[in-house]
Design a protein around this nucleic acid. Structure first.
Lengths: 223, 223
DNA sequence: TTGATAATGTACGAACCAGTCCGTGTCAAA
DNA sequence: TTTGACACGGACTGGTTCGTACATTATCAA
């Protein structure tokens, strides 16, 4: 194997493992960008926390922005894989909606890093996301799922007819997302720890109740 | 007001006007930090856009973070002054809630800079806000207002009894805030311009209906 | 008028930080 | 065993950016 037999015992030489290296960089970069933002994150800091060097970051990702984009794409790829199999088609419309809302709620609750990355991307006017073909093609299946559930509910005469699927998704997402994204300012102003376990169930019930009450409601607003 | 009557008619020399200078810096800094964040914002860029110099920024605000904090405090001071006089006490509970929701909705819609600053502050874990005595004491009157309206509604037997005022404020804020803060990513994914005028009324009606349906609803969730 | 102090401008320093240069190590196919 | 493509590390650089030293002018009270 080795041609230099006289090599001192030291086996701890370099092991080439490009996949591991890339994965390692991405993992550390996700933490860094999620914690400090794109402008606030430091390439040197990322390099130090990996088992490789800064040179490798540029070798694999080209630039700081390239790395950030890779982090963002990986984060979105992960949620896309999660949102697939809820199998709501067999459930009664009300139960299907409850399941869907609970799933969204739990996703944001359990992935604060993703929530932060999305906030950061919004601060940057979603400019990186737009430039990514991968994320750009996220034509989210969740909307079709919601639309189908709404349609079934209307068919059964229990849902109002003027609810748009994207709007409803926004109503659900907004609450679930805000609860995590604005945890710190909201918690500070109202002296309430939004990550407290007792609020978890209460808030989950709340958004379920609100959404269901809304889709069944026949009231029109004067607002 | 001025006691030096013999003020020479406009020599184009320096005019000392500390209030104007501070105000000018704050105005420009708000734009810069709101656009690029705390880490992304550049002190030099701010200085160039003011009619004064970088020296003055450090003279009045001490540091970049000091300036950022001043920007944040001014933004919160502004909303505090706005949220005072809605005079909901005389309205029927349902109308009072509608008015309150519409007001929150319009505030976020009309103050995207404020929304961005709050997002940015959350990325920083609200650390500056916590260190500000001024903002820290924002014991928002809006919660008392909501609590009073809820109480009246319960008295009239039209509102459910288990709704917490802070939770309800969060439900309202979340939708109004998200609509502005996540405009870019959400809009990109769903190919929908969230600042489009026709969505303004639809979304306003939606959050009104949802909240009102919720507070009247007697359903308990199985989620 | 004058002296104290507040306000302002210019130019510069020092640290930081994204990105690169140059050289070395790894491995598999020829 | 040679070779070439891929993988890798450490030191360096040049521009950027926060912050400041020093000089100057304005204001106002005594």
């Amino acid at each position: 194997m080795k041609n230099n037999v006289a090599r001192p015992v030291d086996r701890e030489g370099r092991k080439n493992d490009p996949e591991k290296t890339k994965e390692d960089i991405l993992r550390v970069a996700t933490e860094e960008f999620s914690a400090y933002g794109l402008s606030g994150g430091r390439v040197d800091a990322i390099a130090e926390k990996t088992r490789t060097s800064k040179r490798m970051i540029y070798y694999y990702f080209g630039s700081k922005e390239g790395l950030y984009l890779a982090v963002l794409e990986k984060a979105y790829r992960k949620i896309r894989s999660l949102e697939a199999d809820l199998e709501l088609a067999d459930m009664p419309p009300v139960e299907a909606l409850r399941t869907l809302i609970a799933s969204t709620f739990d996703h944001d609750e359990n992935n604060p890093d993703f929530v932060r990355l999305v906030s950061i991307e919004n601060i940057h006017y979603a400019s990186h996301m737009k430039q990514s073909s991968e994320i750009g093609e996220l034509n989210l299946s969740i909307v079709k799922t919601i639309a189908a559930v709404l349609e079934r509910g209307r068919g059964e005469g229990i849902f109002r007819r003027d609810v748009d699927a994207v709007d409803l998704h926004m109503l659900i997402s907004a609450f679930c997302f805000f609860r995590v994204s604005n945890r710190y300012t909201f918690g500070t102003i109202f002296h309430r720890d939004l990550s407290a376990p007792e609020l978890y169930n209460r808030h989950k019930h709340m958004i379920c109740d609100a959404v269901l009450a809304y889709v069944r409601c026949s009231e029109t607003s004067g607002g």
